[in-house]
Design a protein around this nucleic acid. Structure first.
Length: 610
DNA sequence: GCGAGCCGGC
């Protein structure tokens, strides 16, 4: 039995029809409320809010039968309904069929395309609207700006921004915030800041947009400064703001600052947001505190896909492989549908544990979930097979790729070649990389190192010369340690640190102990043709060793020493650090450009496979 | 009727 609607009570905010537990047949056969456009609009609003698709479709048919679709408000409601139920092409159909198109009708269809990842259509309709003589308003500008940002169409965005200025919308906080966001997405951060500074009224969205803009461009300092200013001025911050600044801390491995911001989150009760949560998981993981990542993950019961992915990648980076597989199973049992990032995470986990069969399994599973493997997934498979020494299987994967192999795919093969000293295949891969045109510095280094590892120093030199001729510079190897709010950075053989003498004395002293425990330096990792004494010296003071020695003389014995490095740790340092952990009884956590190594009692968490 | 985000191997 259908409950009658409160017919003339148009003030009511939440219409009671149709309730979601209404019998289907009731909806199919009878709409027994008074048919005026206000009631119909209310029903549509309710359906849009609850995103109840089948009933919405039936109701749409009913609207057509009764002729109410001719009213602009109703077509506007219908467009919004299809927009929210992610059927933008149905929105378009309703729009095209509407005889009367008001400014709201245009607004809803332009916003619908922007929200459903169809920025080109959004801009096409924006242009059509201008051609029809409509002026954009405070609803239309933000949608158009969003579309420009998605396409990185800076120049078009700029002209829309000019139009907003000319039509007097520059003071509007919605328009202003969307312009800031647009410039930030187009990587024009200075313009974003100029607009931000010129806004007469700003709100939490404007502030978050600006902070997020800095974050996305890696301008950590700008983001942190602005965040501090917002706190200082006692402005509103919210979960958007927090997830941005926490991301900054994660990217720059600023654990202490990140912890302080985490406390602030707890105080302001934003800690249950899974957007903040995934940033926190990533923060703790990137800073080497996997326990912290687990804790955040466990404490947020309402997890979205981003949280699961963040936790998966954390497990992968810290070599908690079984846990990663468990998480994937849990996701399936929670009916959380994995996306392409999820598969990158599990493939990465397999690759770093050398689990070829498991990797193949997940790669096949992608098909079942209907996810087309991208170049990154192929690169991951090549990496997995290559590292495991199955170079020919890796080549087979490349040959079978339906898309053109990219630099990262060949790069993964080069990595495999380096580990398994297959110079011939390395050269073949390097040639393919050169054919692609633009070559990044890491590639030349991989090639040069492949030659050097095989003892072909002349060719290695040639590869390095190629690097120099192309104006590509190898990144300087740096290691750093955080102490309070300070970061101490070291290069190889560095003597600039104030405690330098103490650091070198510590290394000397430790070196003796290590040798007595059986450590022998493996100089084959020095990739230059120099005398053996010089090799010994070069390898002894690699940046990570200096950073660890600093940690040893600075931190209390129970505190793990966390060192970050921008390049891959060399084999000899890896061995040496195992001895260091054994001789000192300390836990040493080293993150290189690739993964975490947790050294304890003379063993490393990576199981020497990295 | 409106604006913004998390997670991503080499």
């Amino acid at each position: 039995m259908l409950h009658p609607l409160p017919l003339r009570n148009t003030q009511q905010q939440t219409p009671t029809f149709p309730s979601t537990n209404l019998p289907q047949t009731a909806l199919n056969n009878q709409f027994t409320f008074e048919h005026n456009y206000r009631n119909i609009s209310n029903v549509l609003l309710s359906l849009t809010r609850s995103r109840t698709l089948p009933k919405g479709l039936q109701f749409h048919a009913h609207i057509i039968k009764t002729g109410f679709q001719a009213i602009p408000l109703i077509s506007h409601n219908l467009i919004n309904f299809y927009s929210k139920t992610q059927l933008p092409l149905d929105s378009r159909r309703v729009f095209e069929e509407a005889q009367v198109k008001s400014s709201t009708t245009w607004s809803s269809v332009i916003s619908c395309f922007a929200q459903n990842e169809l920025p080109l259509l959004s801009i096409e309709f924006f242009r059509r609207m201008l051609d029809c003589g409509f002026r954009p308003d405070d609803h239309i500008y933000p949608s158009a700006m969003k579309a420009c940002g998605m396409l990185s169409w800076c120049e078009f965005g700029r002209s829309v921004h000019c139009l907003a200025l000319k039509t007097g919308f520059d003071g509007d906080v919605f328009v202003g915030s969307s312009v800031v966001d647009m410039y930030a997405k187009c990587e024009e951060i200075r313009d974003a800041r100029k607009v931000f500074d010129g806004m007469p009224v700003r709100n939490v969205v404007s502030w978050s947009g600006m902070i997020c803009g800095y974050t996305q461009l890696g301008e950590d300092d700008g983001a942190l400064r602005l965040f501090k200013q917002a706190l200082w001025e006692d402005l509103d911050v919210n979960d958007f703001t927090f997830s941005s600044v926490i991301r900054v801390c994660g990217n720059s491995t600023l654990l202490e600052l990140g912890k302080q911001i985490h406390s602030l989150c707890l105080k302001m009760a934003y800690d249950s947001s899974s957007f903040v949560g995934s940033s926190l998981v990533s923060l703790y993981s990137k800073c080497g505190v996997i326990e912290g990542a687990y804790q955040v993950f466990e404490e947020i019961p309402d997890r979205n896909l981003g949280m699961w992915n963040a936790m998966l990648i954390a497990c992968a980076q810290h070599a908690h492989i079984r846990k990663a597989f468990d998480l994937f199973r849990q996701m399936e049992s929670f009916r959380m549908k994995p996306n392409f990032i999820t598969f990158l995470c599990v493939l990465y986990a397999c690759s770093h544990a050398g689990l070829v069969e498991e990797g193949k399994h997940y790669f096949e599973l992608m098909k079942i979930y209907g996810i087309e493997p991208g170049e990154q997934h192929y690169a991951s498979m090549v990496d997995l097979l290559g590292r495991a020494g199955r170079l020919h299987d890796a080549v087979a994967i490349i040959n079978e790729m339906p898309i053109k192999p990219t630099e990262s795919v060949w790069g993964a093969l080069l990595t495999g070649c380096r580990i398994h000293k297959d110079t011939e295949l390395a050269v073949y891969a390097a040639d393919r990389v050169f054919e692609l045109g633009q070559v990044s510095s890491g590639m030349h280094v991989l090639l040069a190192n492949a030659y050097a590892a095989a003892g072909r120093y002349e060719e290695a030199g040639r590869a390095r010369k190629m690097l120099r001729d192309r104006g590509v510079k190898k990144e300087t190897g740096l290691s750093w340690v955080e102490q309070g709010n300070c970061v101490h950075t070291f290069a190889a053989g560095d003597r600039r640190h104030p405690k330098s003498d103490e650091i070198y004395r510590k290394l000397e002293e430790l070196g003796g102990k290590m040798e007595r425990a059986g450590y022998v330096a493996d100089t084959s990792f020095v990739l230059r043709e120099v005398g053996s004494d010089e090799k010994n010296q070069a390898i002894r003071y690699h940046s990570e060793r200096l950073a660890i020695a600093f940690g040893l003389i600075t931190f209390p014995p129970e505190r793990p020493i966390r060192v970050m490095k921008n390049l891959r740790v060399c084999g000899d340092c890896h061995t040496a650090i195992k001895f260091m952990s054994n001789c000192t009884g300390r836990v040493i956590i080293l993150r290189d450009n690739n993964r975490f190594h947790r050294f304890e009692d003379g063993k490393c968490s990576c199981g020497d496979y990295w």
